[in-house]
Structures are given as structure tokens and as C-alpha cells.
């Protein structure tokens, strides 16, 4: 796990648990860079490695270059320098071989308002030269059913609610057998119930062995469904790897609730815990290599009355703030 600002300068961030072999990855990018005509660098020297079969959360505040990256991965934009491979094919040269096996939702749903949901899916299916027209009815039907739009299939898209439109866009990614789904903000516009459904749908799809690359600016969403994350900040990938490892890289803290905070603090200091902070009726410290049960035993042994004890796992939000140095949704 490589984290922090210097990551892009030294070595590309690596997936520590697995060797970053391009063959194990559904998406690989090397030095992917996009500089717009105005000189603005939207994506800067990106080294992505999305392992096959993972649910990869592509995190970052709005405007951090997530969508531009996705557009380059899908061959909609040409990189200024560097390159990327999707399902082992270089993009955009290998586009026609790779994309039939990729379902994509880019920057929100877009359909023909005067067509029904079903006719819209047929339209996109007709654009895929690898799709078999003989099975289109059943494939469209099952995609609609899968996102819960079966009953609204004949309704014009114009009459769809925002949530239905988002579902239809997800249905469009499920028209064929896919090896990779690229979902850009898939839960935008969905109510909490819809969000939960999409999350379980993604888990279901991933369980079939499909790699899911999902971008989001909502940390909790990613935390609940992803196995891996990549964190973007102003066009740079500041961290990527398995979510558990990303957590492990960060210090666990203990919190001791006690009416004798000073005494508790001295015990923690004796145990060699770092960053001991004393508050009102509580003390927190970095756990380091010390076993939590030993901390409790020492406290009790020294006669400190312990009212509460907890090991604090850093939330993804805290990790993210640590990585990007700022909160979410505020980046320009």
C-alpha cells in the first residue's frame, strides 16, 4: 500500500496483497494523463490496477478526475500521454474487442425520451455488434426485471422518475454477459431503498465473478460494498489497494472511559502507547502492537476504574481525510 502525496512521484501505487500483474487485472493504466486544451490537468499520471473479480471503489470528491478517467478507459477520450488496458486490450485500439464484455454507466443515464424503457434498451443493444438479435427480447426483459423495472418497461422514458432512469441505466449495463461493469455514481438520484437495492445488486453481480469498477463520492456506499478502493485527489491517485489493507495501514486507537483519566493516561504511557490524549473522563491512544486485552488488564491491575473500553477502527471517511487532507465534496 502506497499512500500519501509522494506516491505518484516515486513508484506507482501497488496492490500489496497481490502482485500487480496485468494479467490478473481487468483494468490497468500506466501513466494515464489527460490535459485539456486549456492546460488544466484533469488526470495526472494514473497507475490503476483493478484486480479481476474485485469490487473496486473509485473514490474522490467531485471534480477529482474520476469521470475523465472512466471516459479514457472506455475509449471516449484519448489520453494525452500514458495508456490503459481494459480486459487485456489496449484502449482505444482494442475497443471493439473489449467493450462488448463491458457494461458501462457514464455520468448518469441518457436515453431517448420518446421511446419506452424497453425500446431504449433495444436501441443500445442494436449498437453492439456482438449482441445476438435473436435473444434480445429475453435479455432486455431479464435486465429490466433485475433492476425492478419490469412493470414500467412499456412506459416512455420521459415519464420515468429520476430513480427509474438510474435503474434503466443500470439495466443497460446488464444487457449481455459482462466481465466488467464500469459504474459511474450508480446510486445518484436513488432513494435509500433504491440505494440498498443497487448495492445488493452489485454484490450479486460481483458474486458471479464480474469485476465491478464503481466510482463514487459517497464513502459509506463504497465502504459497504467494495473489496478494493482507489482514492483520487485533484487528478492523482493517492492510494489504492484492498480496503482491509488500507484500514490496517492506519493506526487503531483505544478509548478508555474512566473517572480517573490522569491515572489511566499514565498506565497507557507505561505500556508504551503513543499519542495519549486525555479528555474529560476518557483517554485515547494509539494501540500500536499492544494487545487490547493487556491494556484492560493493566488498567484494572493498577486500580483504575474502567467504565468503558473500545478499540476504534478508523472509518473510511477518516482515512480519506487523512489521504486527501480535506473533507469530501469540497474539492474544486
Amino acid at each position: 500500500m502506497t499512500t500519501g502525496e509522494g506516491a505518484h512521484e516515486a513508484a506507482p501505487p501497488r496492490v500489496a496483497s497481490r502482485p500487480a500483474s496485468p494479467d490478473d487485472c481487468s483494468i490497468v493504466s500506466r501513466g494515464l494523463t489527460k490535459r485539456f486544451r486549456g492546460g488544466q490537468v484533469a488526470v495526472d499520471d494514473l497507475h490503476l490496477a483493478v484486480p479481476r473479480g474485485s469490487v473496486f471503489g473509485f473514490l474522490g470528491p467531485n471534480g477529482s478526475g474520476k469521470t475523465t478517467t472512466i471516459r479514457m478507459l472506455l475509449g471516449l477520450m484519448n489520453p494525452t500521454s500514458g495508456g490503459c488496458e481494459v480486459l487485456g486490450r489496449p484502449m482505444p485500439a482494442g475497443l471493439s474487442a473489449a467493450l462488448p464484455k463491458v457494461g458501462a454507466l457514464v455520468e448518469g443515464p441518457a436515453f431517448y425520451p420518446y421511446l419506452s424503457g424497453e425500446a431504449n434498451l433495444r436501441r443500445y443493444d442494436a449498437a453492439d455488434p456482438a449482441a445476438d438479435p435473436r435473444t434480445v427480447t429475453s435479455r432486455v426483459g431479464s435486465a429490466l426485471d433485475r433492476v425492478g423495472l419490469g412493470a414500467a418497461a412499456g412506459k416512455r422514458y420521459r415519464a420515468y422518475s429520476l430513480g427509474m432512469r438510474q435503474r434503466l441505466a443500470i439495466a443497460a449495463t446488464l444487457l449481455g454477459p459482462r466481465e466488467l461493469l464500469v459504474l459511474d455514481e450508480p446510486t445518484n438520484g436513488l432513494d435509500p431503498q433504491g440505494t440498498r437495492e443497487v448495492r445488493s445488486l452489485i454484490k450479486e453481480i460481483a458474486a458471479d465473478g464480474t469485476t465491478v469498477f464503481v466510482s463514487s463520492h459517497l464513502l459509506t456506499e463504497v465502504e459497504q460494498m467494495c473489496t478494493h478502493v482507489g482514492v483520487m485527489r485533484t487528478g492523482r491517485l493517492v492510494a489504492q489497494g484492498p480496503i482491509a489493507e488500507l484500514r490496517d495501514g492506519h493506526a487503531l486507537r483505544v478509548r478508555v472511559e474512566s473517572p480517573q483519566p490522569a491515572q489511566a493516561a499514565s498506565v497507557l504511557n507505561q505500556l508504551g502507547l503513543a499519542d495519549v490524549r486525555t479528555g474529560v473522563d476518557e483517554v485515547t491512544a494509539e494501540l500500536g502492537a499492544v494487545a487490547p486485552e493487556r491494556v484492560v488488564a493493566e488498567l484494572v491491575g493498577d486500580g483504575v476504574s474502567v467504565r468503558g473500553f473500545a478499540v476504534l477502527r478508523p472509518s473510511l471517511e477518516e482515512l480519506f481525510v487523512g489521504l486527501t487532507g480535506e473533507g469530501f465534496d469540497v474539492d474544486g
Binding site: R71, L74, G75, L76, L95, S96, L99, P100, V102, A104, V106, E107, G108, P109, A110, F111, Y112, P113, Y124, D125, A127, D128, P129, A172
Partner: peptide, 18 residues
């Protein structure tokens, strides 16, 4: 303008073919 172009191209319709 309708945004459908990006979905046609990722289908992939192919630019020359489209």
C-alpha cells in the same frame, strides 16, 4: 446533446460504423 452518443459508442457502435 442527449448524452446517448456516449452509450452508443461504449456499446460499442464503433465510430466509423456509426
Amino acid at each position: 446533446s442527449g448524452g446517448t452518443l456516449r452509450y452508443l459508442l461504449t456499446a460499442p457502435a464503433g465510430r466509423t460504423r456509426l
